[in-house]
Nucleic acid binder design. Structure first.
Lengths: 203, 203
DNA sequence: ATAATTTTCTATAGATCTATAGAATTCTTC
DNA sequence: GAAGAATTCTATAGATCTATAGAAAATTAT
């Protein structure tokens, strides 16, 4: 009668995950009720449990869906042979594109993932810290190759990029007319060159 | 018998607000229950309603408490006569200091304020957008005075600073041993000079 | 068409949570 | 130490929400 838990990604289950993402994004995990999610799918509350064993499982799936895309992307970027600036741009592009495409799930990942029980969070944590480590590594390599200033703290730099992307992601989500390409350009310029007037001295 | 709603800031009420901040920060608004808050104060659930008319009022007070400090600070900074860089440093210092001092309330403001009903949110919104506008103005003035590059988009720059401060705030909250002064230095350096190698040409 | 499988429905137990009322206690002030 | 005010307590109504069981409907395979 029940199969749920088996991680099949049928079209229906995708729809369930998206519905959950949408409701969680709007009302938060605890604020949302399973009835809302079911209704957004056009089914009744009880039927939702055909797709998820529990409300928490739904949250877990949404979070995973929210990040798996750009986290996967990061592995490719980090392992590529591009110079520092190209890697940075690729990172920002990937992150901001995700915001445009699956902003709801991403918001849920950012805001609600801590409400998951530890057991369910571990996989996410793995992915998240893999992302951060790779980004940090990019900065370290950039420093070695001379593209990044010596005084830059790689740990803080990575955190800064993530923070900025999330802040700009908000703008992107709020204003659907905002041109993604323009945003990416502005952002990378800011990060690479800083605010103040400088002149490049190509090393 | 009841006086609650009157906005008295007695010591007890401050304690109530801090207790609420602590619980909301940990469990989120909907995830927290009034019993948790009361227990953290050492009183029973029902007694909490002596201090707050409702759970929502508690959230509102916590959010206000979380930002009023550095929002107030911003007015002073913006109106002062310092040059651009000094204003930027003062902004970051104020923001990050707030994270160290009242991180719980600040986290609640960031994460939970959207769950407030519109009526109660308006005052917060006013404060928040005042902050943002002043910060944007600082960048505009900096551009006029020549301290900020022409290609910098002030709207995005302000958003970036806010996003970065919040991301760094996370680090500060997570690691209490982190020296605030060091963090502020690293952050401002990153913002002012960017990641890549440049040489200053003092205008 | 019949059987088997998948999906959805209804109804509900069991749990939890907010807000209130009114009594009981502690603190102030004269 | 008695009167009045402030604070906390107990008990509860009324509401809401999750998860489950088992019947019903829809879909697919034989």
């Amino acid at each position: 009668m029940q199969q749920a838990s088996a991680e099949k990604y049928t079209k229906q289950r995708q729809a369930a995950i998206r519905a959950a993402a949408s409701v969680f994004a709007e009302k938060g995990f605890h604020g949302a009720c399973t009835k809302d999610i079911a209704e957004r799918m056009g089914i009744k509350q009880g039927s939702l449990y055909y797709y998820f064993k529990s409300k928490e499982e739904a949250l877990g799936e949404v979070c995973l869906f929210g990040i798996q895309d750009y986290v996967g992307h990061m592995a490719t970027i980090a392992d590529s042979n591009q110079p520092f600036e190209a890697k940075l741009i690729a990172t920002i592009t990937s992150h901001l594109s995700s915001y445009r495409e699956r902003n709801e799930a991403l918001k849920v990942y950012n805001d609600e993932r801590l409400y998951l029980p530890k057991a369910r969070r571990s996989r996410l944590k793995e992915l998240g810290s893999g992302y951060r480590q790779r980004l940090e590594r990019i900065f370290e390599e950039g420093r070695i190759s001379g593209a990044v200033r010596q005084s830059v703290d790689c740990h803080f730099a990575a955190q800064a990029v993530i923070g900025m992307c999330n802040a700009w992601g908000d703008l992107i989500v709020r204003d659907p007319d905002l041109d993604l390409f323009t945003v990416i350009q502005k952002c990378t310029d800011l990060l690479i060159n800083g605010f103040t007037k400088k002149t490049t001295t190509t090393t």
